[in-house]
Structures are given as C-alpha cells and as structure tokens.
C-alpha cells in the first residue's frame, strides 16, 4: 500500500513540477520598473501635437535599464517617431524611438526606445514628444482607470494631466524567471529586513520546493504505517 501511495504521489508531484518548470521558464517582459502600468481595460488617448510634450516624474532607472516602453494609443503602420528625453539625478539622455514599421516602433502598440545605460540607479523625469516639429500627432495610451495608480504624475506641456501615461522600463527582450534567479531573489529581498538577504530567501524557497512535498509524502507514508498497512 505504501508503494501505491508513493507512486500516486510521485505522479501528481511530477505533474506539478512540470507545471512549475513551465512557469519558471516562460519568457516575460524583462521589467526593471513600472512607472505607470499600461491601461487595463479602458485606454484614454494622450494626443501630442508636434511641439507638445508629455512628461512623467519619479521614474526609477536601474543600471540594468536599457529600454523605455510607452504604449501607442492608435497603432498603425504610419505612427510618428518619438523623441524621448530622460533627466534627473546625474543622468541625461535624449533618444529617438525606432523609425519605420516593426517591433517597438509604435506600429505594433509599443514604442520601445533604447537609452544609454545608467551608471547607477536614479529617479528621473521622462518626457515624450514627436520627433518631427510638424506633421502627424502622436497618440499615446493613457489611463484614467481607478485601478491604474502610481506615484508618478503625468503632465502635458507642464500642466498636470488626469490621464496617466503608461510607462514601463525594461532591460531588454523577454526572459524567463529561471534565467536570472539571483536577481529575482534580490528583488524579493528588497522589502525584507536587512538580515534576510537573497540567500536566505533562496533557502526558504528550496525548503518550500523540496521540504513541503517531502513532508507531505512522509506524512502519508507514516499514517499508512500507523494504520498497519
């Protein structure tokens, strides 16, 4: 009977382990910070005529940040190119979003603009305007949804806007959690007391992943032994 129990549990635990492995290896956006989340259900456009500028403050840059993602409110092949300016705490950069049509140009719904690597973490203000001084307006995706909240304020031409501009910072292309476990644990430890670092969290994680199934199997086998079967 105990072998039967062991075999049954092994089947379920292996299926579980497969599911967990799938989650850990699933590629996700390589986010380094989210200044304001993208709209959830109701997108509110922020229209920038040539010369107009939308800014978002208190945007956290990390040494690993390479890309600023802004969402297009009207993704078509003819979206205008954006000029993105980042400044604050010793960092300054002015860059253009990728031109033409294709991934990250706005035509696919996102403007992924590469920025120079920051030397250290900094709180900055990110400003966006159309690259050309005349021509087409840029329509960016903002949100007035109650659930979309952030400490950053959005301004358009210096005036506070009720519509928050979705703005995310990335380190590059998508990657899985399993590809950078130490960084994941360091992030998790950022909120814990100083004496609980990433290594302690790794131990707790291992204890959960190995110890919980082991204790469960042991409990079942011991119970069967206590029952005399």
């Amino acid at each position: 009977m105990r072998r039967l129990a062991l075999a049954t549990m092994a089947v379920f635990l292996v299926v579980g382990a497969f599911g967990i492995a799938k989650v850990l290896h699933h590629p996700r956006d390589a986010v380094t910070a989210v200044a304001t989340p993208a709209p959830l259900h109701d997108m509110t456009p922020i229209t920038l005529k040539p010369g107009q500028q939308a800014c978002e403050d208190a945007v956290a840059l990390s040494p690993g940040t390479r890309v600023i993602r802004i969402y297009s409110g009207a993704p078509t092949p003819e979206v205008p190119q954006l000029r993105v300016t980042v400044h604050g705490e010793g960092y300054r950069a002015q860059v253009l979003s990728p031109a033409g049509a294709g991934a990250g140009t706005g035509s696919d719904g996102v403007y992924d603009t590469r920025i120079p690597a920051p030397s250290r973490s900094a709180l900055t203000t990110v400003c966006v305007q159309t690259a050309q001084r005349s021509g087409q307006s840029a329509i960016l995706a903002g949100s007035r949804e109650a659930r979309v909240r952030s400490r950053s304020t959005t301004t358009v031409d210096g005036r506070p806007s009720e519509t928050k501009l979705g703005l995310v910072l990335l380190s590059g292309g998508p990657r899985s959690a399993a590809s950078h476990p130490k960084e994941v644990l360091q992030r998790a430890a950022a909120f814990d007391p100083p004496f609980i670092g990433w290594f302690t969290l790794a131990l707790v994680g291992l204890l959960a992943v190995i110890g919980v199934p082991a204790a469960t199997v042991w409990a079942a086998l011991r119970a069967l032994r206590d029952d005399g079967v």
Binding site: L13, V184, R187, A188, A208, P213, A220
Partner: peptide
C-alpha cells in the same frame, strides 16, 4: 495530499514570478 503540496508550492512560485521576475 500531493495535489495540495504541488498547488501550494506552485502558488508561492507564481507569486514570486508575478512580483519579482
């Protein structure tokens, strides 16, 4: 028992991935 253990561990790891990956 095994489903409970697997779901619990998976829930915890999903939380880590959601917030920190």
């Amino acid at each position: 028992l095994a489903s409970g253990a697997a779901l619990s561990v998976a829930g915890l790891l999903l939380t880590v991935v959601r917030f920190d990956a």
